[in-house]
Design a protein around this nucleic acid. Structure first.
Length: 830
RNA sequence: GCGGGGGUGGCGGAAUCGGCAGACGCAUGAGACUUAAAAUCUCAAGCCCCAAAAGGGCGUGAGGGUUCAAGUCCCUUCCCCCGCACCA
């Protein structure tokens, strides 16, 4: 009989069709099994799957398939984050429509994903540009508006001249646009819609402690981003004025050392302070200068600290001291109150500023041994210490002083404890076409009026020509813009902006639970069943953007009584990037590895196995063209081993009887159980499939060492078949097509998608004999082979009996004799 | 500057709890098969020294320490990557 060769191009389409026809990856709605929700981060339909996607899907798919085999009801859905700028830009460039372009991209990427054989539930697929999806964005928006969580304000916003739209703070990376790494973000004053994420800042921060399934660095990045700091707001009266200037400080304990005050140049009070002062002109010139610099190059390096005196004084409410009021380029209006009290002795920045402008320095915090002195002080002492020269508070430690001084300010009505957050409200208006229309109507008589729920959805109208210039494209569609006010029926205008696409991705994973619901975003019961997400995998680049927005959205939905969930994600994992020649793959570098090519050269199974094998998942992976063939060869060898033996295996039904097995058969069986343990552990916890695949290679190596004559023994046959079918089932979560084919060759009529994961037996995995290294003074000098249940006394005896050990010990004195049970012996001699 | 992660053969990496460093693979070398090549199979291989062998020494960025024993723990230091950065 001619032996079957491994031909992925023949077997992969066959099994992909079988899975689809059998609806193998669709969820059973009446299941009593435990649930498992596995998910890759939402994909933007750019047109092609890239290697990063392959890595992500291969990883999650292995876990999803494993969980199915372990008896879980697995949800592994797929969809498209389909709104956004690139579609619009492509429309401009190729003279097409964003929708046409997007649907084409989706179709191609779907084709690619199907070819890779991922176990996705396509029956739940949707795109965020589907009206049936984005109508719920609008519904949520109105609910938020009704609760004051969506509001409108004029403010200075980040504006990307390339995108021609505003950006949220999260989308500005070090002053540059997150999409255009070479484009500096400008500022513009615009009326915009904001979502009040700051209402949830404290909760978002507090819950970080409960997210035990999140990587530490992600928690840290979120904590930094939220930027909670506790302190106090203190009012400083202005001399010869009824005005007070409020400052936020975390170091009220240093307030007796405050010798001057610095305001942000754009602080509201500045005009009034300097009006009529001799300093008026220099202050205004300085303000203008900083504004110019702001626009130019705020991003790159923090400039030299500069400031000018306003000519006015504030009074320190604790010491009564006169403090000159300055304005400075390092004080920003966006944080705190836009004004700071300066304590040069105990803040490095204030110290430098004071030195530069010869402002007084006053030491009010002493270190433990009271050795600080102003003379020769080279830098500020910023640690906590003991208060000195601080009136009634002298002698108190910093932490106690913070409490007692805040209490005094509160009693005196000139301050109170305060918590300051760095996170800002989320600006979601975008002056672009390809997004969710904001369901609001502007009426001259009634003001801003939400579109009534019965009139939802507000459908995105067809715009035919895209120029990429001139503000919101929707404002050019009169039949869309002009509308009667729902309240007074007078002439009114629709909001012409669309929503940030991070709105779409903030709750898409809830919609997957009930994707066809037309009465509500989803049935709450479906959320109760599926949430939280058991495994969520994607790149680190979303550690703050998407992952904070969706946490906020979840809490918002909870407060709308739509869900009971506090946190959407139980376990999060960040995957390393896929590189080529040490660099990110990009068209301009010409170093793109196309998944389609790898699939047509080697097949999907090789592509998936290889990308998992090459590096541990959290690390960067440098694609190696030469090494891919090695993985193909491995699969080929496994296939050949099965094909060569399937003749007898498919009719052979005996299971091994441990008592009757030969030593080599027992050894192979032991290896098999050890491999099950290693692979299962990785699928369960670590996701280090590079090691799992190595373990399966080891098992294969032992199996292929079994010779034809060994197989004459029925016990060996039984073990060989058992190992073979165990290996096939384990491989099936990584390389599912070849596994199905081998399973079928071996006479099985069920598909592996419905088969059970092999069970690990600890007794059978245990070694009978173990090799114990014998060390003399910590160096291995001999080895002994002993029974696995060896006693300590026996280990000691056998170690001393070893001839090599004897010669090393010689007539030296044994000073110490360490026996680590079942592991090693170390003899210390002198 | 602050915070986090990392540095192991020619390469990717393994070593999950302080107990044999280098699993598994790639590349390499030698051999078998072949007229030849490819494919396949077998074997070798961390580095260095002692002519070779037997054997020994050295080895996880560097230096120190704890320990019978350190890639793993502690201290110092260098380098690389990532995040935040006038945050009051």
């Amino acid at each position: 009989m001619a032996e079957r060769r491994y031909d992925p191009h023949q077997i992969e389409p066959k099994w992909q069709k079988a899975w689809v026809d059998g609806r193998d990856f669709e969820v059973d709605p009446n299941s009593t099994k435990p649930k498992f929700y596995s998910l890759e981060m939402f994909v933007y339909p750019s047109g092609n799957i890239h290697m990063g996607h392959v890595r992500n899907y291969a990883l999650v798919d292995a876990v999803a398939r494993y969980r199915r085999m372990r008896g879980f009801n697995v949800l592994h859905p797929v969809g498209w984050d389909a709104f956004g700028l690139p579609a619009e830009n492509a429309a401009i460039k190729h003279n097409t429509h964003p929708e046409v372009w997007t649907r084409q991209c989706i179709a191609n990427m779907k084709r690619q994903l199907l070819k890779l054989g991922f176990s996705l539930d396509w029956s739940r697929e949707f795109a965020t540009c589907d009206v049936d999806y984005y109508r719920w964005n609008q519904w949520f928006f109105i609910k938020m508006f009704e609760r004051g969580l969506a509001y409108r304000k004029k403010s200075t916003l980040n504006w990307c001249p390339m995108c021609e739209t505003t950006l949220a703070n999260e989308q500005v990376v070090g002053g540059w646009c997150w999409r255009h790494e070479d484009t500096l973000v400008e500022s513009r004053d615009l009326e915009q819609w904001f979502l009040k994420i700051t209402d949830y800042a404290d909760e978002l921060n507090a819950y970080l402690d409960k997210l035990t399934g999140f990587p530490d660095r992600t928690l840290l990045m979120q904590r930094n981003w939220i930027g909670k700091s506790e302190g106090a707001n203190i009012d400083f009266p202005v001399e010869n004025s009824s005005n007070r200037i409020s400052v936020f400080t975390t170091r009220i304990d240093t307030i007796f050392g405050a010798t001057y005050m610095v305001l942000a140049p754009e602080h509201r009070i500045v005009d009034e302070l300097v009006s009529g002062q001799p300093e008026e002109r220099q202050v205004k010139e300085f303000r203008e200068k900083t504004r110019q610099e702001d626009k130019a190059e705020r991003a790159s390096d923090p400039q030299e600290k500069e400031g000018v005196f306003t000519g006015r004084y504030a009074l320190n409410p604790f010491s009564g001291e006169r403090m000159p009021i300055w304005i400075g380029n390092f004080v920003v209006m966006e944080y705190g109150t836009g004004a700071v009290m300066s304590v040069p002795a105990h803040d490095q920045r204030d110290f430098e500023f004071a030195l530069k402008y010869r402002l007084p320095v006053r030491l009010v915090i002493q270190n433990r041994d009271h050795s600080l002195a102003l003379d020769g002080m080279r830098e500020a002492f910023i640690e906590d210490g003991i208060l000195v020269e601080s009136g009634e508070f002298s002698g108190q430690p910093s932490s106690a002083a913070r409490a007692s001084m805040t209490a005094k300010a509160e009693r005196g009505g000139f301050g109170k404890s305060a918590i300051q957050f760095r996170i800002k409200d989320w600006g979601i208006s975008r002056q672009r076409y390809w997004g969710t229309p904001i369901p609001m109507i502007h009426c001259e008589r009634c003001g801003v009026v939400p579109v009534p729920e019965k009139d939802l959805p507000v459908i995105l109208p067809r715009v035919e020509r895209f120029t990429g210039t001139g503000g919101s494209p929707l404002s050019t569609v009169p039949e869309f813009i002009n509308v009667n006010c729902p309240r007074c029926d007078g002439m009114a205008r629709r909001d012409s902006d669309t929503m940030d696409t991070f709105v779409d991705s903030s709750w898409y994973f809830f919609r997957y639970c009930d994707p066809r619901n037309s009465d509500r975003p989803f049935e709450p019961k479906s959320i109760d069943y599926w949430f939280p997400i058991d495994l969520y995998i994607g790149g680190i680049e979303h550690a703050i953007l998407h992952l904070i927005y969706s946490r906020f959205w979840t809490k918002m939905m909870r407060d709308l009584d739509v869900v009971k969930v506090n946190e959407p994600i139980a376990n999060l994992f960040h995957l390393g990037m896929v590189l080529k020649d040490g660099a990110v793959m990009s068209k301009s570098k010409g170093n793109i590895v196309d998944p389609d090519d790898i699939v047509s050269d080697f097949g999907a199974d090789t592509a998936r196995m290889f990308i998992l094998f090459l590096a541990p998942p959290e690390k960067e992976l440098d694609w190696d063209d030469a090494a891919v063939a090695g993985m193909f060869k491995f699969l080929q060898k496994v296939f050949r081993l099965v094909a060569q033996n399937t003749g007898w295996m498919k009719d052979f039904s005996a299971t091994p009887d441990e008592a009757l097995l030969s030593a080599p058969a027992k050894s192979l069986r032991r290896k098999m159980h050890q491999t099950i343990k290693r692979v299962s552990d990785d699928l369960e916890h670590r996701l280090h499939f590079n090691v799992s695949i190595a373990a399966m290679m080891e098992l294969h190596n032992e199996m292929s060492a079994v010779e034809a004559k060994d197989l004459e023994d029925p016990g060996t046959r039984a073990v060989f078949k058992e190992s073979c079918e165990t290996l096939i089932r384990m491989i099936s979560v990584f390389a599912p097509h070849i596994a199905e084919e081998m399973w079928e060759l071996n006479g099985h009529s069920n598909r592996l998608t419905r088969a059970a994961w092999p069970e690990y037996n600890e007794l059978l995995a245990a070694e009978e004999e173990i090799e114990i290294p014998i060390q003399i003074n910590g160096k291995v000098r001999g080895r002994i082979l002993v029974a696995a249940d060896v006693s300590e006394a026996e280990m000691r005896e056998r170690a001393l009996g070893d001839t090599k050990v004897k010669s090393w010990v010689g007539d030296k004195t044994v000073v110490k004799f360490i026996v680590v049970p079942k592991r090693l012996v170390n003899i210390v001699v002198r």
